[in-house]
Simulated scan of single mutants.
Amino acid sequence: MKIKLRQENQNDHKSVFDLIEKAFEKEEYSDHKEQFLVERLRKSDAFIPELSMVAEVENEIAGHILLTKLEIKNDTASFESLALAPVSVLPKFQGKGIGSKLIVHAHEVAKELGYKSVILLGHPDYYPRFGYELCEKYHIEMPFDVPAENCMVIPLTENGLSGVSGKVVYPTAFFE
């Protein structure tokens, strides 16, 4: 199976909407509205076109990932970071490495663009394989009450989280 990764374009939006809806349809810990979040984020200041990517298999969009800007703030400083939300793979393509390829590729592109870290809320048994660690290790807090084991961060560069601590400030599009 040949997987082609590329930047999402406007013609992909309907396919990506449907893909995200199907990918999260049976997810227990989902509000089943991730597809609407992606639409809002595309229209927000947090959107970075290069970090909205799709995976194609035989000209069918099989997966999508989105990284958007966020901040980590404390009393004395503000640090730019990225949010990984969401990564989606069509059910018929799940378990074939597409999500992994999207995550690794998104990290590479984000690093090339100068970003130093990515934060996410996700499954504690999936994301550590990519280098994600608990946010609490870096004294990074989420702005809402969620289990600590689901709050993770990865430095994209050596010392990418050096001196970084504080509370995550998500773009308003996450809460609309």
Rank of each mutant, 00 (worst) to 15 (best):
K92N: 07
I119V: 15
D75T: 14
A106L: 07
F79H: 12
L113Q: 11
S81V: 07
H105T: 15
E108I: 14
K96W: 06
S117T: 01
V87I: 11
S100L: 06
I98M: 05
H107I: 13
D75M: 12
I103W: 04
L90T: 03
I72D: 01
E108Q: 15
T76C: 11
P86R: 14
S117Q: 07
V104K: 10
L102M: 02
L113C: 11
H107V: 06
V89Y: 01
S100V: 09
A83V: 06
E108K: 15
G97R: 04
A106D: 08
Y115T: 03
V104P: 00
G95N: 09
A83I: 00
I103V: 13
V89S: 02
L84V: 08
N74Q: 10
V104W: 07
K116V: 03
E108D: 15
E112S: 13
V118Y: 01
V118A: 02
I98R: 00
K96E: 14
S81T: 09
P91F: 09
G114M: 03
A110G: 02
N74W: 01
E112Q: 14
E112M: 05
G95P: 03
A85T: 04
L82V: 13
L84T: 08
L82N: 07
K73Q: 11
I103E: 01
L102Y: 09
G95Y: 08
F93Y: 09
N74S: 10
V118E: 00
A77S: 12
A83P: 06
V118S: 00
K73E: 05
D75G: 13
K92E: 12
L90Q: 10
E112Y: 07
E108H: 14
K73P: 00
S88G: 07
K116G: 02
G99T: 07
L102A: 10
P86I: 12
L90Y: 12
V89H: 07
L82K: 10
V104H: 13
D75Q: 14
S88E: 08
D75N: 15
V87S: 06
P86T: 11
S117E: 06
H107E: 14
V89D: 01
V89R: 02
Y115D: 01
A77L: 13
G99P: 09
K101F: 13
F79E: 08
K116W: 01
A85M: 04
S100G: 15
P91M: 04
L84K: 01
L82S: 05
K92F: 07
V89A: 05
G114C: 10
E108Y: 12
Y115M: 06
S117C: 06
P91N: 11
P91S: 04
S100C: 09
G99N: 09
I98Y: 02
A85R: 00
L82R: 11
L102V: 06
L82P: 09
L102R: 03
S117H: 08
Y115N: 04
K101A: 12
P86A: 08
Y115K: 00
G97L: 00
A77I: 04
